[in-house]
Design a protein around this nucleic acid. Structure first.
Length: 290
DNA sequence: GTGACACCTGGTAG
DNA sequence: ACTACCAGGTGTC
């Protein structure tokens, strides 16, 4: 099946897949293969045509955020030289609509890891605890639900190379299952409220909470601050902060909560209601331009 | 409310 | 070969 993307709907599958939001996609030849919720499917883009198999168009449109009015978003966040460059370079990058549960576990696992290591951990978890799916003769796996991960022993989780994150994943899974936690409820809650609820999960701090809100709960005003965003701000937005503050966060290994809040609220105020989109462009720019 | 430190593990620069 | 450091930070004194 194919859909044609109009000129008002810029989209780059390649950039979107390579900017490090989601971790369980792989490219083979021209096609991207992935599993979303219970569904394995593949897709490829040629020019303004998006082709896919084994999944319907509405699902694709939803997952890849094709309903987001990107030209409008650009007009709102394109307010300085830095963002202008990033948008020019990565036009068509979109925020995915990931599954909140998978997203939460993914970013709990992401602390102190690089992207390839994160992919490896999530692959291990899926292979060991997920359900098999046969697609085109290849084996794929769903991401294990809360019940499956709650039942897993710490030893088993550590064998997936989770290290100290095993305990966080296990306890978060147990909490989600015991409370029958409804992620969809957070979609309707305001940003601050939804964030506060996520912060209650073990292994979830401000950065992880912001990632989950942005990448899976539709909070496009969330502005996750990681090492790359910190570097980007130090490099391009230092003039918005006192010198003393910049020097301090430049020399530290990690941010304190209050330093995080300062950078986070700067991003949200500076870029406005689509700050999350600005964050992704800045993040990808900083990672690829050094 | 802040600040220092430990933390699994795999890769890579010195 | 061996050490040091870093990786999409968080929890705990």
């Amino acid at each position: 099946m194919k859909i044609r993307l109009g000129s008002k709907c810029p989209f780059s599958l390649e950039v979107t897949q390579c900017c490090g939001q989601a971790f369980r996609w792989n490219k083979q030849g021209e096609w991207w293969y992935g599993v979303v919720r219970d569904k394995a499917f593949k897709l490829c883009q040629i020019g303004n045509e998006l082709e896919f198999e084994d999944v319907d168009a509405d699902f694709v449109k939803d997952y890849f955020g094709l309903a987001d009015d990107l030209p409008r978003i650009y007009s709102q966040i394109c307010i300085d030289i830095q963002m202008t460059k990033a948008i020019e370079m990565f036009r068509g990058l979109r925020i995915l609509h990931q599954d909140p549960w998978e997203c939460l576990i993914s970013y709990i696992c992401a602390t102190y890891k690089n992207i390839s290591a994160i992919k490896q951990m999530l692959f291990n978890l899926s292979k060991r605890f997920g359900d098999k799916i046969d697609f085109e003769g290849n084996v794929f796996h769903t991401f294990p639900n809360a019940e499956r991960l709650a039942k897993a022993s710490l030893k088993e989780l550590k064998e997936c190379s989770l290290g100290y994150r095993a305990k966080f994943v296990s306890e978060t899974a147990k909490t989600v299952r015991e409370n029958d936690f409804e992620f969809e409820r957070l979609r309707r809650a305001p940003y601050e409220r939804a964030k506060a609820e996520l912060l209650d999960f073990p292994g979830v701090g401000r950065k992880v909470a912001d990632c989950v809100l942005l990448f899976s709960l539709g909070k496009v005003d969330a502005f996750p601050v990681d090492v790359w965003i910190r570097r980007a701000i130090i490099r391009h937005y230092a003039s918005y902060f006192p010198d003393k503050f910049i020097n301090r966060i430049r020399s530290q290994k990690s941010l304190t909560d209050s330093e995080y809040e300062k950078l986070n609220s700067f991003g949200r105020k500076h870029f406005g209601k689509y700050a999350g989109y600005a964050q992704e462009y800045l993040y990808h720019y900083e990672r690829t331009q050094t």
